[in-house]
C-alpha cells in the first residue's frame, strides 16, 4: 500500500529529493518570516500602553513622522525614474559589439563598489562650497556665489544617482541585448524609420524589463539611509522613513514603535511595487526578450 502511495506522490514531484529544500526553508522561516511576524505583532503592543493601534496612531498623528513617507517618496521615485530613463538611450547606443565595450561596462560597474559612504564623502568634498565643482563654476563666472548642493535634498539625490544609475544601466543593457535583432531588421525592411522601430518594436519588448529595473532601483533608493544622514539634511528635508525607524529603535529604544514604522515602510514600498507589477502584467511578455 505504502509503495503506491509513495509512487503517487512522486508523480506529483514529491520525493526524497525535496529534503534538500529543508535547510533553506527552515532558514527563511527562522530568520525572515519569524522576525517579520514578531515585528508585526510587536508593533501592535505599544510600550506606552494604549490601544492595539496606538503606535500607528502615533506615527500618522505626528506630522513630523508622517511626512517622512512623502519625503522618502519624493527622493526615491524621481531618482529611480531618472536612473531608468537615462539608462535607456545610453544602453541603446551601447548595445551590440564594439571595441572597448568591456572597458566601458567595467567603468560603469565601479560606482557600485564605492558604496554609499565613500560616495557621501566624495560628494561632500567635490560639491562642497570650496569643492572642485564650485571652483570651476566660480572661475568660469557661471555663478557668483558657491551653489549649495550638499546637506540638502540634492546631495541625497546625487548620491542615489551615482549608486543607482550603473545598476539600472547594467540591467537595461542586459534586457536590451536579449531582444532579437532580426525583429528590428524586419521592420526596417518593411520601411519603418528609426523612430518607428524604437517606438513600435524595441520599446514594447523592453517595457517589462524597464518595469523590473525601476522596481529594483526604487527598492534601493527607498531604503536610502546612510546618504540621507551624511550628505542630506537629516533633521529636515531628507528625514526619510528609514531614519525615523532607526531613531525609534536605537535612540528611543522603543522597538515596538520602530517595528510599527518598519511595517509602514514595508507597506508603502509594497504598494509601489504592486502598482508597477500590475502595470507590468498588462504588458506583452513574449519569448523574444525583454523578460524581467
Amino acid at each position: 500500500m505504502s509503495a503506491t502511495w509513495q509512487h503517487r506522490l512522486a508523480e506529483r514531484g514529491v520525493d526524497r529529493r525535496l529534503w534538500l529544500l529543508l535547510p533553506a526553508t527552515i532558514f527563511v522561516l527562522l530568520l525572515f518570516v519569524y522576525p517579520f511576524l514578531y515585528g508585526l505583532s510587536l508593533s501592535f503592543q505599544p510600550t506606552q500602553g494604549g490601544g492595539v493601534l496606538a503606535n500607528y496612531d502615533k506615527f500618522f498623528g505626528d506630522a513630523y513622522q508622517r511626512d517622512t513617507i512623502a519625503t522618502t517618496l519624493k527622493i526615491a521615485l524621481p531618482a529611480a525614474l531618472l536612473n531608468v530613463l537615462a539608462a535607456v538611450p545610453i544602453a541603446f547606443r551601447l548595445r551590440g559589439r564594439f571595441r572597448g565595450k568591456r572597458l566601458l561596462t567595467t567603468i560603469l560597474v565601479v560606482p557600485i563598489t564605492l558604496g554609499t559612504v565613500l560616495t557621501a564623502q566624495g560628494l561632500l568634498n567635490y560639491l562642497g562650497p570650496t569643492g572642485w565643482l564650485n571652483r570651476v563654476l566660480l572661475s568660469l563666472h557661471i555663478v557668483d556665489n558657491p551653489i549649495r548642493l550638499t546637506n540638502n535634498y540634492w546631495g541625497v539625490f546625487f548620491s542615489l544617482v551615482i549608486t543607482g544609475f550603473p545598476f539600472a544601466f547594467l540591467l537595461v543593457l542586459s534586457y536590451l541585448s536579449g531582444i532579437d535583432p532580426t525583429l528590428e531588421r524586419a521592420a526596417a525592411t518593411l520601411g519603418a524609420s528609426r523612430a518607428q522601430r524604437f517606438r513600435r518594436i524595441t520599446l514594447p519588448l523592453l517595457a517589462p524589463g524597464l518595469a523590473t529595473t525601476f522596481l529594483l532601483t526604487f527598492v534601493l533608493a527607498f531604503s536610502v539611509f546612510p546618504s540621507a544622514v551624511l550628505v542630506g539634511n537629516p533633521a529636515g528635508s531628507t528625514r526619510v522613513i528609514s531614519l525615523a525607524a532607526y531613531q525609534a529603535a536605537y535612540e528611543q529604544y522603543d522597538y515596538s514603535y520602530a517595528s510599527a514604522i518598519a511595517m509602514v515602510m514595508g507597506a508603502v514600498e509594497l504598494v509601489v511595487v504592486a502598482i508597477v507589477l500590475v502595470w507590468r502584467s498588462r504588458l506583452y511578455t513574449g519569448s523574444t526578450g525583454g523578460k524581467g
Binding site: L21, A24, T25, V28, L31, F32, V33, Y34, P35, F36, Y38, G39, L40, L42, L215, V219, F222, S223, F225, S242, A245, Y246, A249, Y255, A258, S259, I261, A262, M263, M265, G266, E269, V273
Partner: peptide
C-alpha cells in the same frame, strides 16, 4: 509560494526586515 518566500528578502528594503530581525537577534 516557496519561490516567492525566497524572493521577498531581496525585494524588501533591508531596514524593513532588519529592525524586527535585529530585535529578535
Amino acid at each position: 509560494l516557496v519561490y516567492l518566500t525566497f524572493l521577498l528578502p531581496i525585494l524588501m528594503p533591508p531596514i524593513t526586515y532588519g529592525i524586527p530581525l535585529a530585535t529578535v537577534l
